[in-house]
Structures are given as C-alpha cells and as structure tokens.
C-alpha cells in the first residue's frame, strides 16, 4: 500500500504561552495527518487544545502564545515558518476556517455580499461583477433562499443557522483545500445542528476539500468523520478510524468520553461521567496527564509519559483497553 503525501501533516507540534516567569506548554508534541478529501474529527473536553491546534495551523496564534517546536506541512511545504504576508495569502486560499459563533463571525456593518465579494477578490482574479456572480453561486450552494435579494442584507437580518451558512460560504470563497471547522454547530439551535453538519460535509466533498472538524460531540464525529483524534491536556491520546475509535475505544479517557454520551453507549457496563476535570496548564500531572482520573492508573502512569503509538489506531496509554500494552 503506497501512502500518498498527506495534504496536511502536523509533526510534533508544540505551543506554549509565555508568562512572566515560565512558558506554559499548551500543545505537547501533537502529530497527525489529514489526507486529501478526508474529514478528521478532533474531540476532547473544553480546554484540551483543539482550538489552539487549529489556530496554530492557520497561523493566527497571537502573543503570548507561540509555536515552540515541531512543524506543519501543507502539501509537503512547511507553513509554520512562513513570513506573515505569505501566510496571509495562504489563509482563505489554501486553508479556510469556520469558527464557533456565527452571530459574531460576520462584520455587523457590511452586507454579506460585501464580505463575500471582498474575500473572493482577495484570492481570485475576478472583477466586481464576476465576484458577485460567484458570491451568489456560493450562497445558493449553502442553501440561502432568495440569494439574489439576501446578498445585499446585513448579518443581523439572518437567523443563526443562516448566518453559519454564510460563514461556510465565506470559508469556501477562496476554494481552499482544507477547512478547519472549530465547533461549527455548538452555538446553534440543536434542531439545525445536523443540517449544518450535513451541509458542511456535502460541500467539502463537492469542492474536494479536507476538513479538520473540531467538536465535543461524539455523535457528530461518528456520522461525519473518517478518522478521529482524541485530545487531552494538549496531547493526542488516541487516534484512528472513526468506527474503531467509537466502537472499541482503547484509551480509558476515550472510553469515558463515549460512555458519557447516551447515544454512543459502548458495551460498557455502566454509563458514567468521567470523574474530575481536565488539569490547568500550570498543573499538568507528571507521567500520563490523565492518571489522576483513571481507574487503571499504575505507578508507571504517574511517572512515565506514554507516547502515541504509530499505526492505524494508536493510543497513548500504558494500559490500553483490550490489551496490547505498548512500551
């Protein structure tokens, strides 16, 4: 089996926040690939570092945060050390982004047409008329009814779901090959979350774009993603095909994550919340960061940090569920 070069390759990515006396490690040697056309789900509790990973990839990390190690490659080219202007040209053109809150993602004083046309013309060599035509086309694609009149409306004239459709249109405006969608449905009404997820998935398939789909909803991941990465305290602790990870999670944390979602009941005897909460950046335990919350934790877990195994379904655990302890 030949492995074609992945579209995005994140290698040993570390991000720190500089404070007055120390640098807090927020991402700790994160590595993953996204292949062309693939949807990678990223899950984990709030504060796990999901958004930070996306922010680092699109090069929008602001001080005091900075990349302290590792590399990010897009189509085999390093993009983590590009000069600001080159990185800017890449954003929107090669990597698109969708953020959590459609209510605040759009400029309140510009019509959605203005915002679309501006974005299109930054990336594509089109004149005003052609850009407007493309903007209309995008609005049709994301399912805005009456796009011909709606294009001249301001964001406040749209509902939350409609605004997120506009945001998706904006993210697709430059025909990027990769979309980073950071909890694109979390802020929306439950009744329209599925619609938006389906829309996003369909559009990315049509445009041939890969997606890094950040969410804390395992249900969404199960329906949408090809592979899934589970993050905990700034590290990926389990990664594999979505079927394998949801049906047979190997990390105790992933298991807990599945068990805490009623619709995802794995063959676990009890449906339980994971006890405790994720550590703060300045109090990440030695060894496996999950050890204080883990019922299988041993002495080794408290001192030695487990590394993520290579392979299709890897786990970073000394005592993975279903055996085959590594190390």
């Amino acid at each position: 089996m030949t492995t074609p070069e992945p579209l995005l390759a994140v290698r040993e990515l570390s991000v720190v926040f500089d404070t007055r006396d120390t640098a807090l490690l927020a991402l700790d040697h994160v590595s993953f690939d996204i292949r062309a056309g693939e949807i990678l789900g990223v899950v984990g509790e709030s504060g796990a570092g999901k958004s930070l990973t996306g922010t680092a990839i699109i090069g929008l990390l602001d001080a005091p945060g900075r990349i302290s190690g590792g590399e990010i490659l897009l189509d085999g080219q390093r993009i983590d050390n590009l000069p600001p202007e080159a990185m800017r040209a890449l954003r929107g053109r090669c990597i698109g982004a969708i953020f959590q809150d459609p209510l605040t993602s759009l400029h309140p004083m510009l019509t959605i047409g203005d915002q679309l046309i501006e974005t299109i013309r930054v990336h594509l060599p089109l004149d005003q008329v052609a850009a407007r035509r493309r903007a209309l086309d995008l609005l049709h694609q994301v399912g805005i009814p009456g796009a011909e009149t709606r294009i001249d409306h301001y964001p406040h004239q749209f509902s939350g779901g409609m605004r997120q459709r506009v945001v998706i249109a904006l993210a697709l405006a430059g025909e990027p090959k990769l979309i980073i969608a950071d909890e694109p449905t979390t802020a929306l009404d439950v009744s329209i979350q599925a619609q938006i997820t389906t829309l996003l998935k369909g559009l990315c398939r049509d445009h041939g774009a890969s997606v890094m789909l950040v969410t804390h909803d395992m249900g969404v991941i199960a329906e949408t993603a090809d592979r899934v990465a589970v993050m905990y305290a700034g590290r990926i602790i389990e990664m594999g095909p979505v079927q394998a990870v949801t049906r047979a999670p190997r990390h105790p944390y992933t298991r807990g994550l599945m068990a805490s979602i009623p619709s995802m009941q794995v063959r676990s005897s009890t449906l339980h919340q994971i006890e405790g909460s994720m550590p703060r950046l300045n109090a990440i335990p030695a060894g496996c960061a999950f050890n204080p919350r883990c019922e299988w934790a041993s002495a080794r877990c408290r001192t030695e940090k487990p590394m993520l195994e290579a392979g299709a379904h890897g786990v970073a655990c000394w005592h993975p569920v279903g055996g085959s302890a590594h190390g």
Binding site: L60, R88, A171
Partner: peptide
C-alpha cells in the same frame, strides 16, 4: 470574532 474571521479568510492588513 469578526476580525479574527476576517484574518482567517486571508484579508490583507489594510483591509
């Protein structure tokens, strides 16, 4: 957020 999103779309600084 709307400035962050504008930056994420690759709009130039002056814009």
């Amino acid at each position: 957020e709307f400035i962050r999103f504008a930056r994420a779309r690759g709009l130039p600084d002056h814009a």
